[in-house]
Nucleic acid binder design. Structure first.
Lengths: 118, 118
DNA sequence: CTAACGTACAACCAATCAGTTGTACGTTGT
DNA sequence: ACAACGTACAACTGATTGGTTGTACGTTAG
């Protein structure tokens, strides 16, 4: 049944596995941009960029809000942080702390101490 | 010419974008395993697992050493850490430190101070 | 009103991917 | 010597990917 968490990780890493998408993510993390504004920076069609944004959005790394006829995309830094957290788990496995991993996850779910501070 | 760094990132994230490969990485981070030993854990052919290990190896996340007729794979925690570092850069972009990122990149090109230390 | 803009989405194509099977080759144990 | 083991690799298949073009639709400016 490939856990929900694993499917999330698939989406996260797949979305990040393309340099155009990573570049888009950087731009929208720095500030809101319309899809067509983003498209101007790349040597490909608007539709192609639109698809890249959609991939990032499905992964939860980017969110969009409508403003008139424009669709403004912005980066979700919390999502980026949760990918980082996934990698930190790998490092912890290396340390041999496999048992403590589960405890940490439970902890994170119950009281979010490592949360955003605007 | 899609910088070297970007191609590395592609390889890293692509390698991580598969739950079987992530599971293999966890196992080999915890300790050395032969390819066939790894293969026993998954509902797929030996050749398929071998390919997954090859993807991880090409990305630099796993290294192999030969021991008799066995090929022992182990996880490269430094590589995992450098992926984490990539993500931290994204978070820094979000913080508005766009200018410093470029400086860091230039820095990295000229005198590699943030390099691996075994 | 209407023309231009920003977006959405479908259809299509070439390339890559994840999986398979089959073959080949060095290593190990008896 | 030789059978079983662990590996490597090629060839093939179906699914997915990253890109294209074309069409359609709401929104904004003259």
């Amino acid at each position: 049944m490939t856990s929900d968490r694993e499917k999330q990780a698939d989406a996260f890493f797949h979305a990040l596995a393309d340099s155009t998408r990573r570049d888009i993510l950087r731009r929208v993390l720095a500030g809101e941009h319309s899809v067509s504004a983003l498209a101007q920076h790349y040597p490909m069609s608007f539709a192609a960029v639109q698809k890249h944004v959609a991939v990032l959005e499905r992964a939860g790394l980017v969110s969009k809000r409508r403003s008139g006829r424009e669709q403004l995309a912005s980066g979700e830094v919390e999502a980026v942080r949760s990918v980082t957290a996934l990698l930190v788990e790998f490092e912890q496995v290396w340390r041999g702390r496999v048992d403590r991993i589960d405890a940490l996850l439970e902890d994170d779910r119950t009281h979010p101490t490592t949360q955003k501070e605007t």
